[in-house]
Design a protein around this nucleic acid. Structure first.
Lengths: 205, 205, 205, 205
DNA sequence: CATGAATGAGTATTCATTCAT
DNA sequence: TATGAATGAATACTCATTCAT
C-alpha cells in the first residue's frame, strides 16, 4: 500500500538498563518524522528503541503524551532561542529583524526533525497541548510582526503590506527543514546570512 | 468537480466519475484534509458522502487509489495553470516571474484544501504516484529556477543566491493555504499582486 | 491461576451467513455467566459464537453494549411477567403476594443464566444502563412492599417488620438460580408453590 | 486485622503479616469488593496501600494468593462463630436454630465486605482454595439442615420441605450485606432478632 | 449500482509478574 | 524490606478490504 519499507530491526547494542527513556525519545522523534502521528505505531517506536512495548508505557503514559512531550521540548527551545537573540541586541528594527531571522534559521537547522513533525502533525495534539503550542506560535508571529510594523512606521523599512511581508519571511524560514541537508548544504551561519538578506529585501530595508 | 475519466490503473469496472463518485471525491478531500492520510478512515469518508462502504469500493478500488486520484487531479491543474500563464507572456524575466507567481497564488487559493493535503501527506502516496508527483514538483521548481537564473545572468535581477531566492518565493506562495480565508481576506487578485511584489524584491528586480 | 479450563473451540456447525447476531447473544450469555463481566473476553465470545472478532463488532458496538443489551432484555421480561401476573388477580393481599412470588420464581427459573449475571455483575453496567436497571429493580421492590404493607395494615398479615419480610422473600426467590437444576430438581410449578408457602409464612398470613 | 501467620503455601520468604502486609489486606479487601476479582488490578491495590508493586510481591506471591488469603480468613471466622454459638446452647431445635441464625447475621454484618466478595467472586479461586471453601460452605449448610430436619422429625417444626426452608433462611441471611448500612439501619442485635423470627416462621416453629 | 455481513491484521493500552539493585 | 525498570501475553477495539446477493 504505502511507501515506507518498514525496516523495523533496531541498530546498535541492546539498551543498558535504566537508559530506556532516552532511547525512546530518539526513536519516537525518528518514527514520528518518518510516518506522521497516525502512521507511527507505538510498537515500532519501542522496537526501534530496543525495548518492549510495555517498557515504553513505563516511561510514557500514552502515545499522545510521548508526542506532546517531543513538541513541547522543541517549541520551548525556539522560544528561548528567540528571547536570547532579541535581548542581546539594540532597538534598530533592521538589527532586531536580523537577530530574529538568524535565531529562526538556527533553530530550524538544529531541530530539523521536530520542525517537520510540528509542521505536519500539530493538529494531532490533544486540545490542551495544541492550545499551548498555538499560543507560542502566535507569540513568535508577534515578535516578527512588531519589528516589521515598527520599521515600517519609523521609515526604516519601505513596506506597504507588513502582514504579507511577515508571512513570507516566516514561511521561507520554516521551509528550510524540508530541503536542508546538514552534510551537503552550506553551513548554518552562511545560510542564516542569506535568509537575513532575503528578509531585509522583503521588508524593503 | 473531478470530471475527467482519470485512467489511474486499477482493477474492477471503469470509473465514470458521476453522481456517487463526485460526492466521494468531495468527502475524501475534506476528511483527508482534516485528519491526514492515516488519520482518515474510508468508513468515515463513505459516511460523509452518504454512501455505504461497499459503494465506495465500487467507485474506487482502494484507499490509496482514492487518495492518489485527488493528488493527481490537483497537481495536473497546477501544471496546466503554469503552462497557460507562461505561454501568454514574453521573454522578460520579470514579466515571466510575475506570471508564474500569479499562477501559483491563484492555484494555492483555488485549491487550498488539496494543497494542504499534498504538503502534509505526499509521503503516503505509493511509489508510482509519488514518483510522478515528485517529477511534477521538480518541473515547477525548474520553471522558477530557470527564470530567476536567467534574470540574474542578464542583469535584470540583482540576486547572488538564486537557489535561496527561488526557495523563499515558493515557500511563501506554498504557505498561503495555511492562513488564507477566502471569506475574510483580500481578494485573490490583490493577493497575487502583493506576492508578485515580494518575489520581485527577493530577486532584486 | 484461576479455575476455568478455557475450552475455546466452539461446538456445532459454522454459523450460516446472516445469523451471526443470534449466535453472539447466546455465546455472550454463556460466557458472561461463566466468567463475569471482566473475566469474559470478547474474543472468547466471538469464538464460541463461531464468528470472527470483527463480526462481533459488526453486530455490537462494544463489550458494554453487548452486556447491557443482555441485561435490558432480561429485566424487561421480568417487569412484563410481574405486570401480567398482578393484572390477572384481585385485591386480596395474599392472592396478590401469591401471584407475585409465582411470577418471580417463574422468571428466576426461566432466566437462570441472566439472573446470575445480573446478581453478580450489575455494577459493571455503564451509568445510564445502571440507572435504568436500578429503577426497575426498585419498582419490583415496591410491588412486593406495597402488597405486604397493605396486608399488614388490613390485618390479613401478622407482620411486625414488613421491610425485613419483603427482603427475606425477595432474597429467597433471587437465590434460586444459584442452586436450581432444571434437569434434576422439582418442576417449576411445584417450586413456585413451595416458595408461595414460605412467603405466606414469612408475612404471617 | 489479619494477624494469624496463615500458612497458605507459597514460595519466597515467610509472610509475617505486619505493617505493609496489613495495609495491603485492607486495600485488597476494598478494591476486590469495589471491582471484583478480574476488575481489580494489583497495581491499584498496591497504590491504595501506599506501596510499590514490588512491595506487594514481597508480601504476597500472587494476586491469587492475596485473594485466597482474604477469603480464607473470612470463612474461618464464620466457622468459628457458628461453632461457638452452637456449643453454648442445648439440644432444642428452635434454640439451636435461633443460635445459628444469630451467628450468621452477626457474621454477615461484621464481615459485610468479605461476604460480598465471596458471594460474587468465589468462582475465581484456584481449585485448591475453591475446594476448601466449598467444603466449609457445605458444612455450614449441613449445620442448618441438620437442625431443621431434626425439628421436623420430632414435631417441633411443622415443615414439609425442609431443604427449601433451609435455602430460604440462608438466602435471607446472606443477602444482608447487600443492603445493610451499619450507620443508618437497626443495630445488629435487633436485626438478628428479626431474622430469628423469620427463620422460625419459615420452619413453622 | 448498492448493500449487509464478514474477515484478518493491526491499533493503543493494561495485565500480572520478574529482575537487578 | 523495598524499589525502579522491564517483560510477554492479553485486553478491547478499528482498520482496509472482500464476498454473496
Amino acid at each position: 500500500m504505502t511507501t515506507a519499507p518498514e525496516s523495523s530491526s533496531h541498530t546498535g547494542p541492546a539498551i543498558p538498563r535504566g537508559q530506556g527513556g532516552d532511547a525512546l525519545s530518539v526513536a519516537a522523534r525518528e518514527i514520528f518524522a518518518e510516518r506522521g502521528y497516525h502512521g507511527a505505531s507505538i510498537r515500532d517506536i519501542a522496537k526501534r528503541a530496543g525495548l518492549s512495548l510495555s517498557a515504553l508505557y513505563y516511561w510514557h503514559s500514552s502515545k499522545q503524551e510521548l508526542f506532546a512531550g517531543l513538541m513541547e521540548d522543541s517549541v520551548n527551545d525556539y522560544v528561548r532561542t528567540c528571547d536570547a537573540a532579541l535581548h542581546a541586541c539594540g532597538d534598530d528594527p533592521a538589527e532586531r529583524l536580523r537577530a530574529l531571522v538568524r535565531a529562526t534559521v538556527d533553530y530550524r537547522v538544529r531541530r530539523r526533525v521536530e520542525s517537520t513533525i510540528a509542521a505536519r502533525d500539530a493538529r494531532n495534539l490533544d486540545p490542551v497541548h495544541a492550545q499551548r503550542l498555538a499560543e507560542l506560535r502566535e507569540s513568535a508571529t508577534r515578535l516578527f510582526q512588531d519589528i516589521i510594523d515598527d520599521g515600517a512606521r519609523c521609515g526604516r523599512f519601505r513596506c506597504e503590506h507588513p502582514a504579507e511581508a511577515r508571512r513570507a519571511i516566516q514561511a521561507a524560514c520554516n521551509a528550510i527543514p524540508q530541503w536542508y541537508d546538514p552534510e551537503g548544504d552550506t553551513d548554518p551561519a552562511e545560510l542564516a546570512d542569506r535568509y537575513v538578506t532575503i528578509a531585509l529585501r522583503i521588508v524593503g530595508a
